[in-house]
Design a protein around this nucleic acid. Sequence first.
DNA 1: CCTCGTCGCACC
DNA 2: AAACGGTGCGACGAGG
Length: 600
Amino acid sequence: MHLIEHTIKGQLVRIHVVEDERDLPAFKAFILANRDLLAHDSETTGLDWWNAGPGGFLARLWQFGTADESFVIPVEKGPAFQDATRWALRTVRRLIAHNGTFDMHVAEQCLGLPMEELAPKSWDTKLLAHLVDGRAAKEGGPGLKLEELTKYYICETIAGEVKGSMTAIAAELGVKKAEVWPAIPLDHRGYLLYAGMDPILAYRLFKILMPKVPARSRNKGLISWEHRLAHITAQIERTGYLLDAEYAEAKSEELAGEQAKWENVARLEGVDNVNSNQQIITALEKRGIRLTKKTKKGNLAVDDEVLTGIGIPLTDAIIRAKKAKKWKATWFDRALQGQDQEGRVHATVNSCQARSARMTITGVISAQTLPSGDSYVRHCFLAEPGHVTVSSDYGNMELRVIAVYSGDPTMIDAFQRGLDLHQMTADAAGVDRKAGKGTNLTVCFGGGWKAIVEQYGVSEIEAKKAVKAFWNTYPGVKRLADRLQREARRTGYIYTGTGRRIPVDRNRIFAALNYFIQSTSRDILARALIELHRAGYTKYIRLPIHDELVFSFPRERAAELTDKTARIMEMTIKGLLIPVDSEIGEQSWGSVLDLEASKH
DNA sequence: CCTCGTCGCACC
DNA sequence: AAACGGTGCGACGAGG
């Protein structure tokens, strides 16, 4: 046994490093003495848990800890250490982890411990941190990463030491920061300090955060709700999505050709690197073209709008080359590189991420930013053999949420009678439907007439008229916005119907309405996931995307399952239905869009 | 050489 | 009085 002593704010913490099997009895005694509550964490060779196995993804260390003591187990060294870790994970009655979803994947893939076994007894400090204050670090909030939270809630010095230690080790070993994890020797003192400190910090964070969770959130059961949800999204991650690699490879090649062709045109026209804004600006100025649009930081903007506006062969080539390059790299190549041995890709679903708690999907599938209304990319995602893809989404969810929670009679009546709300706003203002729609959506986002002008190409006069008409037509919405802003101004927070507390910045009080709508909409989808799980449908879910769920259903049961799941997703709040529209496609996700397009 | 801020762009 | 909200990622290029 090797002992590492360190201090956190002057308090001694002890990290026991198990070196050989003779050290295991002491480890087991520690587990038994603390089995009511322990934090844990794992160190691995990377993040690609779906490639677990010899020569692939491996668990290297597993750590267990209390507020001032931890044990580090070298699971990489062999079965005896894996057995001890498996035993410990099973023996502890309550487990704490930071972003425990990842560790559950590791436990399942590397130790054969089903996540169904660990999830019910796990607490995740990432979820608790969000319930306390979900603001990102760059927004001036605590952030959600362990280092950020350590810095904010525990001690800045220790956060810097822990974070800095891996940077220093990378430099010492002469490898890039991202490549340090598989390369570092198991007995490296800095690595062991880093590893051993993690569960100690997670344990301390748990003790700090739990009492800070707002009473309203706790009373509404939000803590267990978020944990159940995270467990469901973890299962969705585990299932993954079948990739049509042949299609993806073909498209990747096709786009490579496109890219080369248009880059060549751009080169002949004087721009060697189409991704260099500086080169583009220089080339355009050389031709006597005057650029006026500025970026947020005050530099000359050369975005899609500017380039399209110029409309010469050079700008055309730049747009086409950039698009081909980005689409190839972002979607097809990343999906191909992310495949597991069965040809599946696994998204990372961060179940409670944005300030509003909206989920984000990161990693090998950028599912939330796939080109909409275009089946081109979605064709590479397949339902299981013999299955079809079904997409179910909520109709007008955000506006219906406004209607319900504002209690505005005009808006509620419009939805109940199936009227066209965008046309209604348009009629009230004496503008066209496009301006009416733009107004409805922009106001929902907290925007004003300027935003409508920019986003929807409506004239200034019309936009101003429409905004005024909106507030006059739906006075209940005004009352809701005012109430939320008063609450935000007075307390710095708003609460949603699920008991979630959302911080509102003093200089952006106008955002309160949007936070409320966005967060409530997210919770409607979250509720749907929980109910679908309860009914046994999780295995069919492929992805959650804001207001949509993508399913893979057996072909012969597709109609029945589509109907059953849609009924579960649908929700009536205060008498108003949030309806679900479903589309049944063929095997690929893209086919859903194609079938939809052919109908209209 | 790597890190990080900035920009542009994909979405709801 | 008015105020568009929320993301992730790839690429460049300045700076360490």
